[in-house]
Amino acid sequence: MPRRRIYDPLTELLAAVLLVVLVLVVDRWQFSLAVLVLVVVPAVLLSGRARQIGLAITLVAGPLLISSLLLHGLFYPEGRTVLADLGVARVTAEGLTFAVRMGLRMAVFTGVLLTAAMTLDLPDLLASMTHRGWNRKLVFIVGSAVGLIPHVALRGHRITRAQQARGLVVGRSPLSRIRALLTVMTPLVIGLLVDASERNRMLEARGFSSSVARTSYLPDTDSHRQRLARRGMVVAVAVFSAAWLVVAP
């Protein structure tokens, strides 16, 4: 069961971004590993959606980590300590070290941001952006695009099935595939543009172009203390980063 929300979505997103910045600034594999084990894993386990988030992180980061390991593990011309010579490819200690360190960074990057995004309540985020006075056009685009993605995917799937019922066969040649893509894309885009045209008229009729302040149906989950905390976090990370980059060897 999803956890009860404690903080404003903007506070959670900012905390996740600042954590990624810290990992980039510190740039030590020990710190990356510590963030992964002590922050990301507990956050995923306590999120109430551990299975879905774990699966998403694996699907997004897994292939990249494997391809990175193969790339740097086998092809690293800067490497001097050769562990195995496979002709064109050479397994080097330096290449494997680089792949592991970069892999840790990528795992933290994916883990932190995906956990924050997947525990996010989008209507809450949009309401928070409205309450904070963010550009209403930006709020509209983000909310509308996220709502449209499953609609477009479903519509595209239905059109694909309809075209297959009419005899669409996807051959192996690139031209045949592009032709198949066009038979699906053209009706999909025409339908979406007609919808957009209708939406344009409806938005204009409801005063979308007006610049007056907007109200939100959802209550503001932000507080004065959280706003102070956000500013404090940004200042603390900025000061720490500057000091670390100057002092660290």
Partner: peptide, 22 residues
């Protein structure tokens, strides 16, 4: 403005359609 979410959704969704078409 109204066509931009459409473009964004197409960017993301077409990747999936392209994948299903091989």
């Amino acid at each position: 403005l109204v066509v931009m979410p459409l473009g964004i959704a197409l960017n993301i969704a077409i990747g999936q359609i392209a994948g299903s078409l091989g």
